[in-house]
Computed example of a mutant assay.
Amino acid sequence: MAIGIPICVECGTASNPCRCKVVGPTLGFLAFAVAALVEWPVGALVYCFRHMKGRRIMAHPATVVYPSVSNSIPI
Rank of each mutant, 00 (worst) to 15 (best):
A2I: 10
V64C: 12
V22N: 03
P25N: 12
P41W: 02
G12T: 08
M52E: 05
F49P: 01
P61N: 04
L30I: 14
H60G: 10
Y47F: 10
A31S: 15
E10L: 14
V38Q: 08
I7F: 02
G24D: 15
I75E: 03
E39Q: 13
R19G: 11
N16K: 03
P25T: 10
L37F: 14
I7Q: 01
A62C: 12
L30V: 15
V69G: 13
G24A: 13
C8Y: 04
E10K: 10
H51D: 01
L45D: 09
G4N: 02
F29D: 07
I3K: 09
A35H: 09
T26L: 03
F49N: 04
G12E: 14
C18E: 03
V9M: 08
G28E: 10
I75S: 03
V46Y: 05
Y47Q: 06
R56N: 09
R55F: 13
F32R: 05
P17V: 15
G54L: 02
V34R: 07
M1A: 15
N16T: 03
G28N: 10
S15D: 11
N71P: 04
P74H: 02
P61L: 09
W40L: 01
V46E: 07
V46I: 09
P41E: 05
S72D: 12
A14E: 07
N71E: 10
V64M: 09
V69H: 06
C20A: 15
H51S: 08
N71R: 08
P41C: 09
F29N: 11
R50M: 10
A2G: 09
H51I: 05
H60R: 07
F29W: 04
A59W: 00
L45N: 10
I5V: 13
I7S: 02
G24K: 05
G12Y: 13
H51E: 05
V34G: 12
C20Y: 15
G24P: 15
V22D: 06
K53D: 07
R55S: 13
C48H: 02
V38W: 08
V23I: 04
A62F: 00
V9G: 01
P25E: 11
V22A: 06
P25G: 08
G54S: 11
A62E: 00
G28T: 08
L37D: 05
A44R: 12
P6F: 13
V23A: 07
F29I: 05
V23Q: 00
G24W: 10
G12A: 08
V46N: 10
L45Q: 07
T13H: 11
C18R: 00
W40H: 13
V64K: 01
P61G: 05
G43A: 03
T13F: 12
H60V: 08
R55A: 11
N71Q: 12
G54E: 04
M52A: 07
C48E: 12
A2P: 14
C11I: 06
V42F: 01
V22Q: 01
L37N: 08
V38L: 15
S68D: 00
V65W: 00
V65Q: 01
V64G: 05
V64I: 08
V64A: 06
K21D: 13
P74K: 07
R55V: 10
E10R: 13
P17R: 02
C8G: 04
G12L: 04
F32P: 13
P17K: 03
